[in-house]
Design a protein around this nucleic acid. Structure first.
Lengths: 135, 135
DNA sequence: GGTTTAAAATTACAAATGTAGATTTAGTTT
DNA sequence: AAACTAAATCTACATTTGTAATTTTAAACC
């Protein structure tokens, strides 16, 4: 709950690493960045500082360095970002977005089957689309 | 083709209107904005100017006003934005994104059926991930 | 052709973002 | 305890974005 802060593109890279493994130091974060990203050590630390300021992460002091951990869950950030994207690009129409992605997507048999399974399950439940927000 | 310019959140609102109906004047764009958006006329014109500078739109002078039209297609912008989102939030894993959306989505029977139909078709074709772009 | 006036162009300004260098601080080491 | 040094903090600066007011320009009208 509480509303998730706005996380920029660069900050997302940091967050993904922190979610995937924490507590974690700035140095370790820098080391885990994908190789196509070439930020100086300082740049990484700047993004970390901004995420602290946004209360997206916290830290525990451990010796001379900080060990960072998430304060917002990946789930809620993914959800917020997804909603924002869905709204901005597809005016909120989930199925429109889905069909668009499917048009382009190169999915394996197995992946298609998984989606089919989920859809089947959803259909069974005959979902009611009223309340969207929970908290 | 050619690469699509980066379109900000506010600019997307303008672009959606221009795509949906063009040529169109600044005034008409302002009038078509969703009611929950409350921008001054000047703000709308600023966004239009920025889109011009980015070569996302062009115009024809018609009397005292400009009639704007898109220079980039909705399709390619949606695609670019989708790829960016997919990459940023799901590390590029389409099926992960799909399952995530499906978990949350409130879809009607009909919408589910449409997705099922598309998936079935895709499966039949046992699609290979060719089709052009993407690095 | 001069006046009116709406539209465009210019200017403004704060916040966010990308990118990092310089400085301070406080563990660690001797 | 002083020195060393890695990590944190502070400062910097250009670009993008959100949000508009002010000024200029040129079409329309009388």
């Amino acid at each position: 709950m509480s509303h998730v802060p706005r996380i920029s593109e660069s900050e997302w890279e940091i967050m993904k690493i922190i979610w995937s493994s924490h507590p974690i130091t700035a140095e370790q974060i820098a080391a885990k960045l994908p190789s196509d990203i070439e930020w100086s050590e300082q740049t990484v630390r700047t993004f970390i500082t901004r995420l602290l300021k946004k209360k997206a992460i916290g830290f525990n002091k451990e010796g001379r360095s900080y060990h960072y951990y998430p304060l917002v869950s990946e789930k809620e950030c993914v959800r917020a970002e997804s909603q924002s994207f869905l709204q901005r690009v597809f005016g909120g129409a989930t199925n429109l977005m889905m069909t668009n992605f499917l048009e382009d997507a190169a999915l394996s048999e197995k992946e298609i089957e998984e989606l089919q399974r989920i859809l089947k399950e959803k259909k069974g439940h005959t979902q009611d689309k009223s309340s969207g927000d929970q908290g």
